[in-house]
Write a protein that binds this DNA or RNA. Structure first.
Length: 572
RNA sequence: CGGAGCGUAGCGCAGCCUGGUAGCGCGUUUGGUUCGGGACCAAAAGGUCGAGGGUUCAACUCCCUCCGCUCCGACCA
C-alpha cells in the first residue's frame, strides 16, 4: 500500500478530545476518528491493527476448541426478561421498538441468546462439552464513555460460552479459556495479568479479569508481591487485624451540631478518623440494613451485596434514613438500631469509639461495639487498599491500576436454569448444563496495546498487531533509481508475506521520519539516494536508535529474518 | 444524575471582560527556492462564531433556554 493512495492523515497537535496517551496517539496517527461521544470510526490503519488482534483471538479460540458463530445484535427484550437482566442492567441497555411496538434491545452481551440457542440445539451428553464464540459489536449505554476506545457505547467484543455436563467438566473448559487468554495477550505483546474479580451483573460464582497494568486504568488492583495474590479492588479481601482497644466507661451523648461527615468529626473531636464508626444505611432489595466500617475506611458495596445475597444494594435515601434512625443524615449509629447490622471485621473488639446517636446534632462516645450494640455479623466489608494485609500470606498488599481487557466467568447454572437448558445424561436423566462465559474487549485491547507500548515520538506496535510490519520510506520519489529499488523491495517483501507501507509522498525526509515514528510500524526501511550511494537501504527497528545499511539484494531476506525474530520474541 | 470546564476554518487556538460585522499557527491549493528528523518566500481557497430566543441602531462579544464535547464524582453517615 502507498501513502499517496491511502486515506490517512496524521496530526501534529494532540486532539482536544483526548486525555490519555493512547487515545491521543490513536487519533494523531490516523487510526480512529470520533463520530460522537463513545462512537468511533476505524480508519484504514486502525482497522488493519484491529483485524490483526481479532485474528490472533480467532486462532487461539479455534485452537482451544471453540467454534465461531455469529448471533444477532438486535434482540427481543423478552429474552432479557426471562433471565431477569432487563431490570438488572437497567438503562445500561439500549432499547428500541420495532414497527409492531415490540420492545427490542441492542445486545450488550449474549448469555441470553446463546443459552436459548443451545437449549434448543443440544439434547444429549454426547454433544457436550460445547464451546462457541463470536466477534461482534456490542452496545452499552455507558454512563460516561471515556478515553476513546477504552469505554465506548459501541465496541467490538469476543464473547465465548461453554456448556458442560458437570461443574468439574466446566472447570476444565474454564481452564482451557484461561490458558487461551494468556496466549492471546502474550501474542499481542501485552503484559496482561489475571486477577480475581467480582462477577457483577453477569452473575456466577467465580471469575478472573485479565488486567493490563497502566496508571490510566479505571480499575484498582490489589497485589501481593510476596505470594502473588492479585484481585480487583472490588473483590479483594484482606487478612483480619484485630484492634487493640482497651475497655472504656459507659456511653455518653455529646452535642455535635451540624457535624455530619467524618472530616467534620475529626475536626470536632480532634482524634483520628479510625476512632469513629461510620454507619451506612443501605437498602438491600428495598429492605434497610446498616453497615459499619471504621471512619477511615470505605465500604465495598460489592462485598455487602454478596454477603446479603441481594440483587440490588443502594445507599438509603434521606427519608428512609430519617425513618429508620429518627435522625437526619449524618447522625446514624449502631446503638439501639432496630435493623440487621453488619460490621467490618476490623471492628471486632472495637471499644471506646464514637458513633452517631440516631438523634439530630448528637453523637455518642465510649462505644464498645459488642457491649452497646447488636451486631448481626462481623465480615470483611471494607475496600482493601495499599498497606492492608494479604488474605493468603499476611504480608503487606500493594495497590496498582489496570485496564480490564478480558474477563472469564464460571456461571454455573444461572442461565441454563432461566432457559431450561437441559440434556439427557448417560442414564437417560435430564440435567442442567453448566455454563461459563469469557469475554475479550477487542477494541479496548487494541488501545491497551498502544497505552502500554509508546514513547514520546509515537506508537511502538508489537509486530503481531502493527497495521503494517514494514514502513518503507521512499525519500526521493523523483529519483528513478531509488523508486526502482523501493518498487522491487516492496514486491519482494509482499512475496514473503510481509506487509509493507510505502511512504511515497513528495515530502521532505524529516516529515516522513516523524510520521513513521508516530504510526509506529516495527521495522523502518529507508530507500534514499544517499543510502544507495553508500551501498544499500537502511533497516531500523522502531525500538532502536541506530540502523543497518543493507545491500539491496539482501534486504528482503534480512527483513524477513527480523520479522521472524520479532515474532519469536513475542511468543516466547 | 450531580459538579466543573469547553464549543470560533479540516486540526490546535486567540478575540468576548470593555458590543461596531472575525484573526493566528498548522494543514490544503498554486508558483518558486529548498531537500536525511515536522523548510522558506509569495499568492489563494476555506467560517450560518454549536442551535434557538432576548436586549440593542448594531451581538462572536451581554442575558435566557437548549444541544454537544471533555474532566471529576457517583461514597455520605
Amino acid at each position: 500500500m502507498r501513502w499517496s493512495r491511502t486515506l490517512i492523515a496524521t496530526l501534529r497537535d494532540d486532539p482536544q478530545e483526548a486525555e490519555i496517551a493512547s487515545h491521543k496517539l490513536m487519533v494523531r496517527a490516523g487510526l480512529i476518528r470520533k463520530l460522537s461521544g463513545g462512537l468511533y470510526t476505524f480508519m484504514p490503519f486502525g482497522l488493519r491493527a484491529l483485524q490483526k488482534v481479532a485474528r490472533i483471538v480467532r486462532e487461539e479460540m479455534d485452537r482451544a476448541g471453540a467454534q465461531e458463530l455469529l448471533m444477532p445484535a438486535l434482540q427481543p427484550a423478552e429474552l432479557w426478561e426471562r433471565s431477569g437482566r432487563l431490570a438488572a442492567m437497567g438503562p445500561g441497555m439500549f432499547r428500541l421498538k420495532d414497527r409492531a411496538a415490540r420492545l427490542m434491545t441492542l445486545g450488550p452481551t449474549h448469555e441470553e441468546v446463546v443459552t436459548e440457542l443451545i437449549a434448543g440445539e443440544i439434547n444429549s451428553y454426547r454433544q457436550l462439552p460445547c464451546t462457541v464464540y463470536q466477534i461482534q459489536t456490542k452496545f452499552r449505554d455507558e454512563i460516561r464513555p471515556r478515553f476513546g476506545l477504552m469505554r465506548a457505547k459501541e465496541f467490538i467484543m469476543k464473547d465465548t460460552y461453554s456448556f458442560d455436563t458437570s461443574f468439574e467438566a466446566a472447570d476444565a473448559s474454564y481452564q482451557a479459556m484461561y490458558d487461551a487468554y494468556v496466549r492471546i495477550f502474550t501474542r499481542c505483546g501485552l503484559a496482561a495479568r489475571p486477577v480475581e474479580a467480582d462477577t457483577g451483573d453477569i452473575g456466577g460464582k467465580w471469575s478472573h479479569e485479565f488486567m493490563v497494568l497502566a496508571d490510566s486504568g479505571e480499575d484498582g488492583i490489589v497485589d501481593c508481591p510476596a505470594c502473588g495474590y492479585a484481585a480487583n479492588q472490588e473483590r479483594a479481601e484482606r487478612a483480619a487485624a484485630a484492634p487493640a482497644d482497651a475497655a472504656c466507661p459507659a456511653i455518653a451523648e455529646v452535642s455535635t451540631p451540624d457535624t455530619r461527615t467524618v472530616d467534620d468529626l475529626v475536626a470536632h473531636f480532634t482524634c483520628g478518623a479510625d476512632r469513629f464508626i461510620k454507619t451506612l444505611l443501605y437498602l438491600a432489595d428495598g429492605k434497610p440494613v446498616a453497615a459499619l466500617v471504621p471512619g477511615n475506611r470505605d465500604l465495598n458495596e460489592h462485598k455487602l451485596k454478596r454477603l446479603l445475597g441481594a440483587k440490588k444494594v443502594e445507599l438509603a435515601d434521606e427519608p428512609t434514613v430519617q425513618k429508620v434512625t429518627g435522625a437526619p443524615v449524618g447522625f446514624a449509629g449502631p446503638v439501639g438500631l432496630a435493623l440487621p447490622v453488619y460490621a467490618d471485621q476490623s471492628l471486632k473488639g472495637a471499644s471506646d469509639r464514637i458513633t452517631g446517636a440516631n438523634k439530630a446534632d448528637t453523637h455518642i462516645v465510649h462505644v464498645d461495639l459488642a457491649r452497646d450494640a447488636a451486631v448481626t455479623a462481623y465480615e470483611d466489608l471494607a475496600v482493601v487498599g495499599a498497606g492492608d494485609l494479604c488474605p493468603r500470606c499476611g504480608k503487606v498488599l500493594q495497590l496498582k491500576r489496570g485496564i480490564e481487557v478480558g474477563h472469564v466467568f464460571k456461571l454455573g447454572t444461572k442461565y441454563t436454569e432461566s432457559f431450561d437448558a437441559k440434556y439427557l445424561n448417560d442414564k437417560g436423566q435430564s440435567e442442567l448444563m453448566v455454563m461459563g462465559c469469557y469475554g475479550i474487549g477487542v477494541t479496548r485491547t487494541l488501545q491497551a496495546i498502544v497505552e502500554q507500548s509508546h514513547d514520546a515520538d509515537g506508537i511502538i506496535w508489537p509486530v503481531s498487531v502493527a497495521p503494517f510490519t514494514v514502513s518503507l520510506l521512499l525519500l526521493d520519489p523523483k529519483d528513478a533509481a531509488v523508486c526502482a529499488v523501493a518498487d522491487s523491495l516492496e514486491k519482494e517483501l509482499q512475496a514473503r508475506g510481509i506487509d509493507v507501507f510505502v511512504d511515497d509522498r513528495e515530502e521532505r525526509p524529516g516529515v516522513k521520519f516523524k510520521d513513521a515514528d508516530l504510526i509506529g510500524c516495527p521495522i523502518r526501511v529507508v530507500a534514499g539516494a544517499k543510502g544507495l550511494a553508500k551501498g544499500g537501504v537502511e533497516v531500523k527497528l522502531r525500538t532502536s536508535k541506530s540502523f543497518d545499511l543493507v545491500p539491496v539484494e539482501n534486504a528482503a531476506a534480512a527483513i524477513g529474518k527480523l520479522v521472524n525474530d520479532l515474532t519469536a520474541a513475542l511468543n516466547k
